[in-house]
């Protein structure tokens, strides 16, 4: 069985100060069973053998649950396969002879560290602003000590599946981080433990999001369409509701 031959146009940038440029590579004999990252591994192994600098990209679990990987593939964050992280995207979705454009997340608050790696500390600072509940730490309480409605538990859990990959920002024409911030606000705001700080949380997190330099939400829905976890647009309505109430 022969593999696919692909042409890759990859963003190469030596460091934050480098201007960066698209560089074309050819990868041969790519198995359709490879993941997108494994295909890049093949390219990198060859680049190392040739004495070249391998393409830097973020990755960790390669199971689609950690949120580390992410690149804009042919103009779509995580590629065109829906509800899929880059690591779970398989080469069977591409054809022999395809040209694939690979770029990092593009947003001013996500500066490029190297090649396809961006610094997503801005997300951490949004969480630090209010994405938590203040409770006395100790041993875990018994399950069902505090009753939670099934519908609320489900919706909170759906929002909590956000892995913070940043695809929402990358896909948004405005470079907005609303879906990420809203997912966290929804997750905590739906549960009884999150109620005492619900208003201050929404206010602090939205203000931090704006301070980081993310754009504003214009309800385009591009974020939820590329989100590997399918976080719904509804979370943004909830964020707006909580924020308006807090103000």
């Amino acid at each position: 069985m022969s593999g696919m031959n692909l042409t890759l146009k990859v963003w190469r940038q030596k460091g934050p100060a480098d201007e960066g440029r698209m560089v074309t590579y050819h990868v041969e004999d790519v198995s359709p069973d490879m993941s997108f990252l494994e295909m890049l591994d093949v390219l990198n192994e060859r680049l190392i053998l040739e004495g070249d600098d391998p393409v830097a990209f973020d990755h960790d679990c390669r199971e689609g649950i950690c949120g580390m990987c992410g690149m804009v593939i042919n103009g779509v964050a995580h590629g065109e396969q829906r509800a899929t992280t880059t690591c779970q995207l398989h080469m069977r979705h591409f054809k022999d002879g395809d040209t694939i454009t690979i770029e990092p997340w593009r947003a001013a608050p996500f500066p490029v560290v190297k090649d396809l790696v961006v610094d997503r500390s801005a997300f951490d600072r949004i969480i630090q602003a209010g994405g938590f509940i203040s409770v006395p730490a100790g041993s875990a309480p018994d399950a069902h000590t505090i009753p939670v409605k099934k519908a609320d538990a489900d919706a909170a859990f759906d929002a909590a599946t956000c892995i913070g990959c940043g695809a929402c920002v990358a896909a948004c024409p405005n470079g907005s981080a609303s879906l990420f911030t809203a997912a966290k606000i929804t997750h905590l705001g739906l549960l009884p433990q999150g109620q005492p700080e619900r208003d201050s949380r929404a206010k602090a997190m939205v203000e931090q999001m704006d301070a980081e330099g993310f754009g504003g939400c214009t309800n385009t829905g591009e974020c939820t369409a590329v989100c590997p976890k399918g976080i719904p647009l509804e979370t943004i309505a909830r964020m707006n509701r909580d924020y308006l109430r807090a103000k």
Binding site: E80, E103, G215, T220
Partner: peptide, 30 residues
């Protein structure tokens, strides 16, 4: 002001044509 914030939030444009993933022609005419 939304447009200006959006431009500031993405100083480097994508090389590949960004394909709309959300169905909503009207949204992109705003």
């Amino acid at each position: 002001s939304l447009t200006r914030r959006a431009r500031k939030a993405r100083p480097v444009k994508y090389a590949a044509r960004r394909k709309s993933q959300a169905s909503g022609y009207a949204t992109h005419t705003m």
